[in-house]
Design a protein around this nucleic acid. Structure first.
Length: 478
RNA sequence: GGCGCAUUCGUCUAGGGGCCUAGGACGCCGCCCUCUCACGGCGGUAACGCGGGUUCGAAUCCCGCAUGCGCUACCA
């Protein structure tokens, strides 16, 4: 199958666009077909190079590659011009000389009349009128002459047969008064010209489809198959946009989601393999995807589900691979600029301690950030200790006493000694171990006690014990 | 207003007349696992928008209503 992803470079690649790209890519890869990338930048005002670069970057990050393109519509003017000429020659389009105000009046009248607000231009201007228009410097737009009788039927791969009666389809503009092509012309011409076999795009294009089919037919071609996939909504059920947060692919990357997990979650928006499969690798998605199993109703994008899928993907990874991914991500976030290149070694050593607990890579600083600087007691953690100062001093003091005697600074040795002390005190695990951990990490949330102590090293660990004990003693006296 | 699309747990979904006293996943709640959080295990909470048909039988088919969304530009 020959498919295409055709974004307009007027903004970020968001979750909805990425999912459209993904579906197309899955189809191409699954069928051994071709993925065409086309930038629809006929709107020169709104299209930007930054947006284009961002879209390409996002696709590369996800691993969505393409076989042909990127083609830019702005560079294919001659193709559209030729198509428009042919449409003129065959009488499929006609020049419309009406002003905007006149067309608007036509729509208003129809609306008031409870009819479809469609516009049709006059085709019987007198020579005098035309001469006058030219004299005024008026330039016509070219409209497609829609046959008002009949209807266009789309045999949509996901929605079934959808019929659009022509009385509700207006004579849409095909060439602007400055002779540039409009979207409906360019998209149709390109799909035909690039021999696209299946157009898979958002449902918001459904009502454009009859127009594009008419253009292709007027050009003597056969329209491709169409599949209109449901829109992706925000939690408020409105179409997903920036204000919903984490809606763009780059935000997802910066939040520490993996490309594979993102694809997995995106694929599940409007598509399912069966009644119980959630976790799938990219090769599995390629093998299992089927456009006919795409649902017809819109889906709300839920970060919680992505979190879950991401966490599972992270934990499933071998330590070595996880380390590479972590280091690369932290690098991209400027972590090593802040903590020095030497921090990389320490980061790698934290991998086993951190892998089990991470859901997203951006939680790394939350869990292990305390390791990369002097002891800083955060307020919440300090509160837990000072809730019962006497108890804290006693428990932490006891821990320090035992640890001081440990010279073989390994997790096992530390655990053995601390567990032993725990039993001697007859305290429960939480009351005894949590203060130990807070004493050296200064955090309520962090890597586990034993591994944290090992990571710190004996000297620094004991030093931190004493520092915390000292602070506790100060308020105890007061 | 017009045209089109949609409507199963809070969310993603399975389901195409009897297998459904509606299944899975996320979330949430509870319990367990002698390190908070997390991870893991176990259990629980929770849905077929409404009204008419068709049928022996409807979440599944038909009609109407309601609601939501999309399009309604010389934007894409």
């Amino acid at each position: 199958m020959r498919v295409r992803f055709a974004p307009s470079p007027t903004g970020l690649l968001h979750v909805g666009g990425a999912r459209t790209a993904l579906f197309n890519w899955l189809i191409a890869r699954r069928t051994g077909g071709v993925m065409v990338l086309r930038l629809e930048d006929t709107d020169r005002e709104r299209s930007t190079a930054e947006s284009e670069a961002q879209i390409l970057r996002s696709m590369e990050w996800l691993g969505l590659d393409w076989d042909e393109g990127p083609f830019r519509q702005s560079a294919r003017d001659d193709v559209y011009r030729a198509a428009i000429d042919r449409l003129r020659a065959s009488g499929a389009v006609y020049p419309a000389w009406e002003t905007d105000a006149e067309m608007e009046a036509q729509r208003e009248a129809a609306r008031a009349d409870r009819r479809a607000p469609v516009v049709r231009g006059r085709r019987d201007w007198s020579e005098d009128d035309l001469a006058r228009f030219r004299e005024e410097g008026r330039r016509p737009v070219w409209r497609f002459a829609v046959d008002p009788e009949g209807a266009t039927v789309i045999d949509d791969l996901v929605r079934g047969e959808v019929t659009f009666p022509h009385h509700s389809v207006e004579d849409f503009v095909v060439a602007r008064s400055d002779d540039t092509p409009t979207y409906n012309l360019a998209a149709a011409v390109d799909d035909h010209d690039m021999r696209i076999s299946h157009v898979v795009r958002g449902e918001d294009h459904l009502s454009n489809t009859p127009k594009q089919m008419m253009v292709i037919r007027a050009l003597g071609g056969t329209p491709p198959e169409y599949a209109h996939i449901p829109l992706i909504l925000g939690p408020d059920k409105k179409r997903l946009s920036k204000r919903h947060g984490a809606a763009s692919v780059e935000e997802l990357r910066d939040a520490g989601y993996l490309p594979a997990a993102t694809m997995n979650a995106l694929a599940l928006l409007g598509w399912s393999y069966d009644d119980k499969t959630t976790l799938m690798s990219v090769p599995e998605l390629v093998e299992r995807f089927s456009i006919t199993r795409v649902s017809r109703s819109p889906a709300v994008f839920d970060l919680k589900k992505l979190d879950h899928i991401n966490g599972r993907a992270l934990r499933r990874m071998p330590d070595a691979e996880f380390a590479e991914v972590l280091v690369a991500w932290l690098g991209g976030q400027g972590f090593f600029e802040r903590h020095g290149a030497g921090a990389e070694d320490l980061v790698r050593r934290t991998v086993p301690a951190v892998k089990r607990k991470l859901t997203r890579l951006d939680e790394y600083e939350l869990l292990a950030g305390w390791l990369f600087g002097p002891l800083e007691m955060e307020d919440e953690a300090w509160e837990t200790l000072r809730a019962d100062v006497r108890q804290s001093i006693q428990v932490i003091g006891a821990g320090l006493g035992r640890l001081d005697g440990v010279h073989d600074w390994t997790a096992d040795a530390i655990k053995e000694v601390l567990q032993d002390q725990l039993h001697i005190l007859g305290s429960n695990a939480r009351d005894f171990l949590e203060p130990q951990r807070i004493a050296v990490t200064g955090r309520r949330i962090s890597t586990g006690v034993y591994e944290s102590l090992v990571l710190l090293g004996r000297d620094e660990a004991l030093r931190r014990y004493r520092e915390t004990l000292g602070r506790l003693a100060e308020i105890w006296v007061a």
